[in-house]
Nucleic acid binder design. Structure first.
Length: 616
DNA sequence: CCCCCCCC
């Protein structure tokens, strides 16, 4: 092998395990495997620094797991650990290294064997001193605990901060640095077990989000201190399985503060790197595929704002206030979004602004609607965590942790504004919030094994909702189409610079790249192939047919990467199936008409019910 | 150890 082999950071493992911070150690992967079948998926890696071997590298972050699925970290690959955290697992009495980011230095197939010490980089400190980026300086200073300075204490603060996604009930040495995205009111409760007060807040870092609860003593201690949008270090607390009844965040766990808990506000300097807000936007058009009572985030134009009305609930006799606003996005679909009580009174936004909503509740009154409860309206335009409901269609509601942002500083805002100015303000929109049964709510949920000649109609398409994982994508999705007068027929290359269309009977030097993508999808009962056409194919791959064709011609590696972005992700697909008869057999053929990524749907009671029915 | 996610 003539290639220059990468140098491993010899000695780094013993330092790392002794809790001495090593910045960006270069290690070789010897083997890895998936730890459990259950969610969340975790991987355990065995790595070497040339001398020592450690089998306790754990990968939890979805982004990294996706890269594992794509084969990026094959055997013998040399990687640089760009972010890791050492944790002492008390139950198992051993150290675990949580890897939250790593990059490939050289692929395993190029190296082809285990590297040993003679090929490593010699004493580690030499390696460290070669580099002078900010992280490295911090890493070095943090070891010098005998000479405290502001630098040193800041470095000490940063030390052992782990991503929220690494928090599980199985170790308690975590320390997170997180932004508070919403804070509840203080509530009093009394029942058979006693009485007390409680409040909760949602925290976010660049890995994920988590709900934090504080009861009675901790409620009094921390309620005034916690402020929305501020960043805190939090350490010590009881980690338990999240109660989905009270939380709509995408996290299996939540934290309850206890008497050992420490909460410390971050200095100005330190808050910068914690993201302001994380969204998983769903398009309005796709709301029908979203389960009722789910929560979604979306970004939209505020088309109109109705009056705030007060009325008395017939069910509870409670005095309620509500305000409806109409949201529209560049799918040309609109939905009604209902704000409640203070949120309804205080909402102050002229039409035609862009709104991003986090955590809206999806319902179905006269189509799909969104609603919000007692939310503090910021001057914002993105909705996070809207709840999907089901009164006569689909609606969106805001719940207590729903937030919005007006004209958020993200690329989607400009895309929407441009669309609205160009055509959106004049286009006829399809409302998901009107009477009738449009949308997918009447579409039956099926497992893949249930889609067969008994369930599929003979002549027309039968529509189903399925939740499935993409396990493979076809490698030849592009074709040259005629493109004249809306003709999308495949053309034949005359090999003289002209392309012949059988349908139009023309030869033209022009053609249009189009997509017919085949994907193999799988659920817990079976698998099958579905066809995805142009617009939906561009959407699932996140690239236009034209851009993809350029990659195909100029960059085979990037082409393959672009083709496989959807692999191993889960979606809810709305598919149409029909039986096609051939000479000696008949086959069920399916087309995916739209889809929603499952991680954008959060928890859906409909899906959970469906799965429970199947498994019981 | 706690909240109902409300209305048409």
């Amino acid at each position: 092998m003539s290639a220059i082999l990468p140098k491993l950071s010899d000695g780094s493992l013993s330092q790392m395990l002794a809790d001495q911070r090593v910045d960006r150690p270069v290690l070789q992967i010897l083997v890895y495997k998936q730890m459990t079948q259950s969610e969340p998926i975790k991987y355990r890696f065995q790595m070497t620094d040339g001398t020592e071997v450690c089998s306790n590298f754990i990968v939890i972050l979805p982004e990294l797991i996706q890269r594992i699925s794509r084969g990026e970290f094959e055997k013998f690959t040399v990687v640089e650990l760009t972010a890791y955290t050492l944790n002492i697992n008390k139950q198992m009495e051993r150290q675990i290294i949580i890897v939250s980011d790593m990059s490939v230095v050289m692929s395993g197939s190029k190296i082809g064997r285990r590297l040993d010490k003679s090929e490593s980089n010699g004493p580690l400190l030499t390696n460290v001193s070669l580099n002078t980026n900010a992280n490295r300086i911090e890493a070095n200073v943090s070891v010098v605990t005998t000479t405290p300075s502001s630098m040193a204490s800041r470095a000490a603060n940063q030390q052992n901060v782990c991503p929220i996604s690494a928090i599980t009930p199985y170790f308690n040495a975590w320390r997170i640095k997180a932004r508070v995205t919403s804070k509840s009111n203080k509530r009093h409760w009394s029942n058979a077990k006693g009485e007390g007060s409680v409040f909760s807040f949602d925290c976010m870092d660049d890995s994920t989000e988590i709900r934090v609860n504080a009861f009675t003593k901790e409620c009094e201690k921390f309620y005034d201190m916690i402020e929305t949008n501020k960043v805190y270090y939090i350490t010590k607390g009881t980690v338990k399985t999240a109660n989905k009844k009270f939380s709509n965040l995408v996290n299996d766990y939540e934290i309850t503060l206890n008497s050992d808990s420490l909460v410390e506000e971050c200095s100005e300097m330190e808050v910068m790197e914690v993201p302001k807000m994380r969204y998983r936007f769903v398009q309005i058009k796709d709301l029908p595929a979203v389960g009722l009572q789910s929560c979604v985030d979306l970004i939209a134009i505020v088309k109109s704002v109705e009056e705030c009305n007060a009325f008395t609930s017939k069910k509870t006799n409670k005095e309620l206030k509500k305000r409806d606003i109409i949201l529209v996005d560049n799918t040309s679909y609109e939905v009604r979004f209902t704000l409640w009580n203070e949120g309804a009174e205080q909402f102050d936004c002229e039409p035609n602004r862009v709104i991003a909503v986090k955590n809206a509740l999806v319902g179905d009154f006269n189509g799909r609607t969104l609603s919000a409860f007692d939310c503090e309206p910021n001057r914002v335009i993105a909705v996070k965590n809207a709840l999907v409901g089901d009164f006569n269609g689909r609606t969106l509601s805001a719940v207590s942790n729903t937030t919005f942002q007006l004209d958020p500083d993200i690329p989607e805002t400009n895309i929407l504004k441009e669309w609205y100015e160009r055509e959106g303000n004049s286009v006829t929109t399809n409302s998901l919030s009107k009477s009738g049964s449009e949308g997918n709510r009447d579409t039956e949920w099926k497992f893949l094994s249930q889609i067969n000649e008994q369930t599929v109609g003979n002549d027309n398409r039968t529509y189903f909702n399925v939740r499935a994982r993409v396990v493979q994508t076809g490698r030849q999705p592009l074709y040259k189409a005629c493109g004249q007068n809306g003709c999308l027929k495949k053309v034949r290359d005359n090999n003289n610079g002209f392309y012949h269309c059988d349908k139009c009977q023309t030869d033209s030097s022009q053609f249009e790249w189009r997509l017919i993508l085949s994907v193999a999808i799988s659920d817990c009962t079976g698998e099958g192939w579905v066809t995805i056409f142009q617009e939906q194919a561009e959407k699932i791959l996140g690239i236009s047919a034209k851009e993809l064709s350029e990659l195909q011609e100029n960059n085979p590696q990037e082409f393959l990467k672009a083709l496989t972005v959807a692999e191993f992700k889960q979606y809810v697909f709305r598919i149409g199936s029909k039986i096609e008869h051939y000479m000696d057999e008949s086959r069920v053929k399916s087309v995916a008409f739209n889809f929603t990524p499952v991680d954008a749907i959060k928890h859906s009671k409909q899906l959970i019910k469906n799965i429970n029915e199947w498994t019981n």
